[in-house]
Amino acid sequence: MFDDLTDLYQQLILDHSKGPRNFRVLPDANRTAQGTNPICGDNYTLYAKVDGDMVKEISFQGSGCAISKASASLLTESLKGRTIAEAKNLFNKVHDLVTTGNLDGDVGKLAALAGVHKFPARVKCAILPWHALMAAVEGKGETVSTETEKELS
């Protein structure tokens, strides 16, 4: 009966939300962006060190629900050492995954986010760190908010 719940809160998600990876400030970051969800108060800052078109280092700080925190943690794990083009590509795949449940190619551990699509109210939580990431790597250095979702998605 609680299949949907255990789909949403897979062990990997619970694990990353309780012990987030790369959860720190990056002192030599040359890109940062903030992501906030004013409805529930989720608030994250993403730090990236970008060299040429390569994401050399990436980390995050902040607070929010299990879904947003795990998503941010998984994001930092999957993007280190990738190019900006690859990051954008991954953003699109994750966006599809959490909104439709469709998995297009291999996204590694990020597949754990597939359960989110059955919880429309939680899609914003999962995608928030990714919007912040895009703002960061595009050098916008601004705050992105879930409440301009029209622009964002």
Partner: peptide, 8 residues
């Protein structure tokens, strides 16, 4: 988080 409480 409160959102996780509400979802469950």
């Amino acid at each position: 988080h409160a959102h996780d409480v509400v979802t469950v």
